[in-house]
Design a binder for these strands. Structure first.
Lengths: 252, 252
DNA sequence: CGATGGGTTGAGTTAAGTCAAATTTCGTGG
DNA sequence: CCACGAAATTTGACTTAACTCAACCCATCG
């Protein structure tokens, strides 16, 4: 057992990088292993098939694919979208590190949406059969898994509120505020971040056209609420954006 | 143990009505006990706190209420809705018998939406703590519970597609087709049913005004696709409605 | 350095919203 | 059972937020 693994001798490549583990993953306080003790985290690690790289633009799964695994995002960003019979697409979410993909597939053992990487990304493949066995043994994991599914339900309800009730300005403010808080939760700046999606994708998600998104960006910029340069965003007045999101402020 | 319960001697009131059971409930093939054998169904029955009556217009739970139980609808209809800080409401779903309410509350132990009965209804109160214990012992129940949560995620994604991408006509057709298939799954007519919600509630759910809903009803009626009389609906051309839903047919 | 895909801006259009008025339905008490 | 008021619904006329279409800009990259 003292014998070094071959990879250990390769310069510049640590074992950790090749065989990543939940315990060393910066996302473990947000992701599935949240709250697990070391032993349990180790067991979860065991069942994770592999850490898969998904290059920008590549498909992680598509509608109709048989369901085998959930995917935890280690790194990067994804979008999920639905497709109407007439071909119209609707982006149902943008996911980032620590979030779980594929939960919609549990109901019928087939995926119900497409998932594509917005940038070069990495996911942990969690075979659902194995996970189910662990759930029975690990109440903490079971509880957190349920929380994550429930959270997804809640998130989607908020989007329904956004799409069904909000004005374009309010939708866009809500979108920015949401991104901001998620980056903050991951230890990144709440005010400065890169948009990983195109204007078209933002528009699609928000039920707006690309032109409307562009105009909203210009409007917010003109009103001094943010700085924009291509995909780089800086929120200059987060409080105002939150007020607009809440509908308590109409915006100039 | 031979001694009759007091209620047994009341004329016209059966024990079954007072102490309903999953095994005798017409919804058990759609509801949480789906697929359970007799013994397991009995165990599930044991934990169900009570069958609660919820009169029309009454609140089952509201945003912020501490989460204690899920509710399976035995009978009747409910709506769930979100509320924006500015007071705007968005109906996120209409639920009917055999469906589960409250899953959004698991994530934070607080309810995230309001739930109100659309007519005099009855629910089975399923204390979540007890349910969690059962889940560990009963793999079939665990699996079906996950399916139900996943189904809710999928359902909400469809609504996002509807709200984000569809035209008013398409939304309304989708709404009718959806109700139709759910009644069919419950053994009711797929073509003739009562709307349990007001036009205003339909409009709110679909992101339309009450006037638009009224106009759409009139339009569909004029085009011979349905008969309407107050809340009574008869679908005369379900195939056409499905085609409109799919976006493959634009409607006259 | 020209092609390409993303993004911006302006002008005109339209689907759905708002406002208003008429009509029907429903619940309640006489 | 009927009358009445309140609530829900329908319909029409007009308005508007967001869309479409079109031109243009700009960053990137082979």
């Amino acid at each position: 057992m003292i014998q070094a693994l071959p990879s250990l001798v390769l310069p510049g490549v640590s074992v950790e990088a090749l065989r990543a583990r939940c315990s060393s993953c910066s996302m473990h306080q947000l992701c599935l292993p949240m709250g697990l003790d070391t032993a349990d985290m180790e067991r979860l690690d065991q069942i994770i098939g592999r850490r898969r790289k998904v290059p920008r633009g590549a498909t992680l799964f598509r509608i109709g694919d048989p369901f085998a695994s959930l995917y935890a995002i280690r790194l990067g960003h994804f979008k999920t979208f639905q497709v109407n019979p007439d071909g119209a697409e609707q982006i149902t979410g943008f996911q980032m590190s620590g979030e779980l993909l594929g939960m919609d597939a549990i109901s019928t053992d087939r995926h119900h949406c497409n998932s594509i990487a917005l940038e070069d990304s990495e996911v942990c493949e969690i075979p659902f059969g194995s996970l189910q066995q662990l759930l029975v043994d690990m109440p903490t994991l079971l509880r957190h898994f349920h929380r994550m599914m429930s959270q997804e339900i809640t998130r989607e309800q908020s989007v329904m509120l956004l799409l069904g009730n909000m004005q374009a300005t309010q939708r866009f403010a809500a979108f920015l505020v949401n991104l901001s808080s998620r980056y903050e939760a991951r230890g990144y700046s709440a005010t400065t971040f890169q948009l990983r999606m195109t204007r078209e994708e933002i528009g699609n998600y928000l039920g707006l056209t690309i032109e409307s998104v562009s105009r909203l960006l210009s409007k917010f910029k003109k009103e001094g609420m943010l700085r924009v340069s291509n995909r780089e965003i800086e929120l200059l007045n987060p409080a105002m954006l939150k007020a607009i999101t809440a509908g308590t402020r109409t915006c100039g």
